[in-house]
Amino acid sequence: MLLVPCPHCGPRNASDLSYKGESHARPDPNSATAEEWRSYLYMEDNPAGWLRETWYCRSGCRRFFVLERDTATNEFRNPPVPGAKLGGKA
């Protein structure tokens, strides 16, 4: 099981966290086109390589945060700019 480096708790089992998916900025609901909004809801970049992800430390500190992960090696690193994006759509 993957160890996820929670910035508050330290490394925790992935099952202690919930994965909130790729970290994308939420479009302005007042000006977004349907295509933009649905791309935000449903489309993922899914690269083989570095990816920004939102995690929620559900069993631990209950904090949302962003990490970068190399999807090919599962190596983690802190993002240059911290600050989580809304994780999941509900």
């Binding site: 929620y56 209950r62 904090r63 509900a90």
Partner: peptide, 16 residues
């Protein structure tokens, strides 16, 4: 549980 998490999600990410 879902709504607690949903509320925290908004507070911690979009509106800290």
């Amino acid at each position: 549980a879902t709504i607690w998490e949903w509320a925290e999600n908004w507070l911690q990410t979009e509106h800290p």
